Computed example of a mutant assay.
Amino acid sequence: MESLFLLVLGNTEISLIPGISVAGATPELTKFTPPADAEYLFYEKPRIINAIPVTPEGHPTPAIITKASRELAKFPILVVRGGSYLAPLLPHVHISDIVGRDFRKEKAIPKVEEIIERTKLLGEELNRTNIKELVIGESTPGGTTTAQAVLWALGYDAKTSSASPRNPQELKEKVIKEGFERVGIKNGDLKNEPIKALAEFGDPTLATILGISMGFKRDVVLAGGTQMLAVAALLKALGEDLSRFMIATTKWVVNDESATFLKTAREIGIITYSADLDFSGLKYRGLQDYEKGYVKEGVGAGGSVWLAVKAGFSPEDVARKVEELYERLISRT
C-alpha cells in the first residue's frame, strides 16, 4: 500500500454563525456534515442522517468527488475523528469529541497540546507501515474562517475561500477581528507562537492534521483548499521541512478571485497541485454549478483526484463517475 487517504472530521462553533458556512442546508445541520460526509464514502448514503450533505441551494457535498475517485482508484480510507459533535457510524480513529469553540468568546481549542500529542502518535505509528504517502482531507464546516484567523495571527495577509460563490469575506473579517480583540493582538503578533495561534483561533481539524503531519515522516499531501494553507503555515512556523509536503486542491479554489490561494502558498513556500475537473458538460445543474463557484473543495476532493490520476485515470474519468454517482443518489431519493 503506497498511499493512504485520511479523512479528518471536525466541527467548530464558528459554523453556527448565520451566513458564515454553507456546508449544510442550515447552520444547525452543519453538526451532521462531517460524519455524513465520511459515511457517504463507504455507503450509498449517510446513516447518521437520512440525507446527503448539501448547500442551502441544494448542491451536493464534494464527498461525491472523493467517492468517485475512490471507486476508480480503489485507494484505502481511514477516518479520523479530530473533534466533532457526532461520531460517524463506521470504524474510525477517535482523537477527541471536543469541538472548536467560538473564538470570539473563548480560546478555540483548550487542550490543543493533547490533540497534537495524540495525533503525532498516530503519525508515528503509520511510519511503521509500508505507506509512502499520506493524503489528508477534511470535513469541517466553518473551517475556512478558523484557517484565515490562524493565517492572520501568523502574519499572512490571506483570504480563504468559501463553498459559496459569494464568499462572506466581510463577515469572516468581522468575526476574526472580534477574536483578535478578545486576545488583544493584531495581525502577525503570534508569528513566533504558532501553537498559541492555533489554540486561540483554530479548530480541532487543523490541530489533528498538524500532529499527524509532524509524526509521519514521509510524503504528505494536504488535500484541501485554503484551509490547508493554515496547516502549511503552522508546519513552517514549527520548523518543519516543507519539501515533503504538497497541497492538492481543485481548479475552483485556484480560480477563486475572492481568495488568495496561490499567493499565500507562494508566501509559505509550499508546492500545489490543482485537479482540473470540468463539470460544465455534466447533465445535472447541481453539478454544473460547481463551475459557477459553488462548493469548490472539501472532503479531500483535490487529493482524491491526485490519487486517481496517479492510478491512471483522468479528471474526465472522475467527472463521469461523479455523474454516475449523482444519478444513483437521485434514483434513491
Rank of each mutant, 00 (worst) to 15 (best):
R47V: 11
V99H: 11
K107N: 06
V99W: 07
P34Q: 13
E138N: 08
I65S: 04
I17Q: 11
A73W: 14
K111H: 15
K74C: 08
T146F: 01
N50E: 15
T129V: 10
E106Q: 09
V99D: 07
I131H: 03
P18W: 11
L16A: 14
G10T: 10
L78D: 01
G83P: 02
L29Y: 13
H94M: 14
E138V: 05
T33Q: 06
T145R: 09
K67W: 03
K132L: 13
T12C: 06
S139R: 02
Y40V: 02
G142L: 03
I109C: 08
L72Y: 06
I115A: 09
A87Q: 07
P18H: 13
P110R: 00
I17Y: 07
K111S: 13
V22Q: 00
T30I: 14
K111L: 14
V8E: 04
P18A: 13
K111V: 09
V112I: 15
A38D: 06
I17A: 10
G137E: 01
V112E: 03
P110V: 00
P34E: 11
K111Q: 13
E117L: 12
K111M: 12
L89G: 03
G142W: 00
N130I: 05
P46I: 05
P46K: 06
T144Q: 04
F103M: 03
N11E: 06
G58Y: 09
V79D: 00
T145S: 14
L134V: 09
F5M: 13
T30K: 11
R70V: 07
G82V: 05
G143L: 02
H94N: 13
E113Y: 13
N11L: 07
L41C: 08
R104I: 13
E117H: 13
S21Y: 05
A108Q: 11
I131M: 08
T26E: 09
V80Y: 05
V99R: 07
S139A: 14
S96K: 12
E138R: 02
V79C: 02
I115S: 08
L16T: 09
S84P: 01
Y40W: 07
I136V: 15
V79K: 01
Q148W: 01
S69F: 11
I109S: 04
L9A: 05
L41M: 10
V80N: 04
V22P: 00
F75P: 02
I77S: 01
D97W: 11
T55C: 02
S96I: 12
N50I: 06
P60W: 06
V54M: 15
I48H: 01
G10F: 06
S139C: 09
I49V: 15
A149R: 08
I115F: 12
A63P: 02
T66M: 13
G24I: 03
G83Q: 04
V54S: 12
K67Y: 05
E13Q: 14
V8K: 03
T140S: 10
E138A: 07
G19D: 03
A68Y: 11
P27Q: 15
G100C: 14
